[in-house]
């Protein structure tokens, strides 16, 4: 473990437990977006905050080893593209751009509401990754300037 990287041992230990809970909460919010308050935007910001927690507590070096940053870039672009793909599938299967062509299922069931759940997941990934990456770049610029 690096000595002068990140915050103190107490913060690191707490973060090691809390990050998974925050991530789980974000995923819960995304998946229940069509049933309860929340959805892709809120869940995405929660996921970004969880990753940000690691960045603040453990420092930049550890985070770049733990997460594959270029993979996060790919994930961000891919989710935006998949949103478009769902929209174009709506033309062929539902008759209109972004039409709800999937099986709507039963009201109040978790796997229901057709494309809404799918789009919520893509939006969550997109928002979470892009917001985390912005802070990643902002924090990086600060370190370079301090040299």
């Amino acid at each position: 473990m690096q000595q002068n990287d990140g915050m103190t041992l107490i913060v690191k230990t707490v973060t090691r437990i809390s990050v998974w809970m925050i991530l789980l909460y974000g995923i819960y919010i995304i998946f229940h977006g069509h049933l309860s308050p929340g959805g892709g935007f809120a869940g995405g910001v929660i996921i970004a905050l969880a990753l940000l927690n690691v960045l603040l507590a453990f420092g930049r070096k550890f985070t770049s080893e733990w997460l594959n940053i270029s993979f996060l870039h790919d994930l961000e672009s891919a989710s935006a593209t998949l949103f478009l793909v769902i929209g174009i599938l709506g033309i062929s299967l539902g008759g209109a751009f972004l039409a709800n062509f999937m099986n709507k299922g039963e009201l109040f069931a978790l796997l229901s509401a057709g494309t809404i759940l799918t789009l919520n997941i893509f939006i969550g990934i997109k928002v979470g990754m892009s917001l985390f990456l912005v802070v990643w770049v902002l924090a990086g610029s600060k370190i370079v300037k301090g040299e």
Partner: peptide, 10 residues
């Protein structure tokens, strides 16, 4: 129409 309970989401 949409099968979602959260109308804002729909």
């Amino acid at each position: 129409d949409t099968g979602a309970a959260n109308l804002v989401s729909s």
